[in-house]
């Protein structure tokens, strides 16, 4: 891009920024208090979890999270369809290997803790899954070509686990005459925990597989 065009883009971006700031200031000056927050806190006892963000993610707006897991799955399918992964890194030296042997179990343990704690305090499936994915990244950096993931068919299973568990729970409550993903109050906590557990594994496996960046070697070639 040449000089005058660069300048034009900068001026237009600055004008857009000024406009957005003005909109923000007028909206904030005129805005009433958000009613959604009060409703979210009022319905919290019905969900069986104490962390309002987890309640929004897996109860009030569970559709969003279901579709978000579907987006994650679609991205992974896109990555897999683009061919084999980049060659693995060379095997790490003994000092790094010793560190990895400590760090990976610690990451998995912390991920499990975040998943369990997410019901009451900050944490949850996404943070726990991210730590599992980070464990995969560490393993791949230390020279494991598959980033600690299992073989191809099991990887496929792990990738659809989140969407699958979500749909299974949703359709089961539908069969009992409730709306899709409208959990019965007594069961709510455990259903949410089950979905979160499956979602943690799926997110961790998907992120690690995305870091590997290619179709797993295996059958079906």
């Amino acid at each position: 891009m040449n000089g005058p065009a660069r300048l034009l883009v900068a001026l237009l971006a600055a004008a857009l920024g000024g406009l957005l700031l003005w909109v923000l200031a007028t909206a904030l000056a005129a805005r009433p208090e958000p009613a959604l927050a009060e409703a979210a806190f009022a319905a919290l006892p019905l969900t069986g979890v104490g962390n309002p963000v987890t309640a929004v993610l897996l109860d009030y707006r569970a559709y969003d999270t279901l579709l978000e897991l579907a987006v994650l799955l679609a991205a992974l399918l896109g990555i897999w369809s683009l061919g084999p992964p980049a060659p693995a890194y060379q095997r790490a030296g003994s000092a790094l290997r010793a560190m990895v042997a400590w760090v990976v179990p610690l990451l998995i343990l912390t991920g499990g803790y975040l998943l369990w704690a997410g019901g009451q305090v900050p944490g949850g499936a996404f943070q726990g899954g991210a730590l599992l994915g980070a464990a995969g990244v560490v393993l791949r950096l230390a020279g494991d070509p598959r980033a600690g993931l299992p073989g191809e068919s099991l990887q496929r299973l792990l990738a659809v686990l989140g969407v699958g568990a979500f749909l299974l729970v949703g359709l089961t409550v539908l069969a009992f005459g409730r709306d899709l993903l409208d959990y019965p109050t007594d069961w709510s906590k455990w259903l949410i925990l089950a979905i979160e557990g499956a979602a943690t594994l799926a997110i961790g496996a998907t992120l690690a597989a995305a870091y590997v960046g290619g179709r797993p070697p295996g059958e079906g070639r």
Binding site: P34, L36, A37, A40, F41, P52, V53, A55, V56, L57, Y60, R61, D64, T65, E68, V71, L72, G124, F126, I203
Partner: peptide, 14 residues
Amino acid sequence: DPVPHALVLTGIVV
């Protein structure tokens, strides 16, 4: 408000 927080959380992963 927890609702935007949840939206951002899904947004980060996407």
